[in-house]
Design a protein around this nucleic acid. Structure first.
Lengths: 200, 200
DNA sequence: GGGTCGAATGTGGATATCCACAATACGCAG
DNA sequence: CTGCGTATTGTGGATATCCACATTCGACCC
């Protein structure tokens, strides 16, 4: 897992440097890229923080870069900067999932605040996803039968009822139940249910 | 609970009528209001569907009307119409929770489609809230002790452990447990946990 | 054929949950 | 004082869950 940073992507060096300096004065680490292609080349799924993306750049546009990030499954919050107001474009990018949208000239303090908020959101999302991934990994290790039993346990059914529905003995239900609890790393059915609190 | 309708708020009668007719041809009921004040006077928490709100009107503006709805706790999806492009305003209203934002002249078919989507979202949200309200009503009827026991049951603890932690007998835990299960209308601890799947 | 894995089942015993029936104590309202 | 609601506790018995130890069967691979 990498250090969370604000990834600043703008072909205007003055803006990159000014922003980087401002964020540094707020204790927010940053990395700068003069072109969208540079950022995409450096991006990995473990890249953390947020992206500040100029809409219009030489080479690849900010919007195309955003699309490429989405295609790769990136969940990084993206803040767009633009020098040319265009309502449908602003609306469309926000609906597409962009975190925010700023027109130049920039209100630096407001932008820095939003960058902080975007990075905090990224941290929260990553923590939630780590939990979800861990649960999903455990589920993937269950056998077909164990998975079946788990779904019925999660529906609140007694072992006896489960046995009737699947036409097997209660003892077999108990065995599968014990095995799945071990694989899911829980001791009780309620603990199991709690694993799926935000997972479904 | 009222019939779900697209509530069309615009001081331009031609737009109200054209939209109402278009939605009618798609089987979407609508109601029209020539002023924001008229819509707010008619609004109740049971109003369903969505709101289509012109940004600039004589009298109260669309944005003030939106704020008033939010103040009253309305969850109706709101689609804004505007004749004057303004990126910061569009971005701000979307961030404030508006469902969508359209510039005039309108692309009628796209707007009608979005209205349909907004109404579907409202229906989903209302169903989810009904469930949540029902669960909360049941929780509100629990005694202090029953609530305490419930939290520990939901943490997956055995009755014996709960008794130790609260310094009471296991029999007392059983009694409270039985009482709270009855009030919460569940038969097993897993059913109870499932009530809070999306409630927390 | 031998080994592994998953599914199935049984016995016997321990622990956990559930509850009818019964009772006491305390706080509060009329 | 009486009645009501809540909290607490016990007895005895039934049902549910858990599991050590043991076994068999079928599918698949070497």
């Amino acid at each position: 897992m990498n250090t969370p940073k604000a990834h600043l992507v703008d072909d205007d060096e003055a803006i990159r440097d000014a922003l980087s300096w401002l964020l540094s004065s707020r204790g927010l680490p940053s990395a700068t890229y003069p072109a969208a292609e540079d950022f995409l080349a450096a991006w990995t799924p473990a890249t953390c923080g947020c992206v500040v993306l100029d809409m219009r750049m030489n080479g690849m546009s900010g919007l195309d870069c955003f699309d490429a990030l989405l295609d790769r499954g990136s969940t990084l919050p993206v803040i767009f900067l633009t020098g040319h107001g265009d309502v449908p474009l602003a609306v469309a990018t926000l609906k597409r999932g962009a975190f925010d949208f700023f027109e130049k000239p920039l209100n630096d303090n407001e932008l820095a605040t939003r960058i902080g908020e975007a990075m905090a959101l990224d941290a929260l999302q990553r923590a939630a996803n780590a939990t979800l991934d861990s649960v999903n990994a455990r589920v993937s290790r269950l056998t077909t039968r164990e998975r079946q039993i788990m779904d019925l346990v999660l529906a609140g059914k007694y072992n006896k009822v489960i046995a009737d529905e699947l036409n097997i003995s209660m003892r077999t239900v108990e065995v599968h139940r014990a095995n799945l609890f071990e694989k899911m790393q829980v001791k009780t059915a309620v603990e199991l249910a709690n694993l799926f609190k935000t997972g479904r």
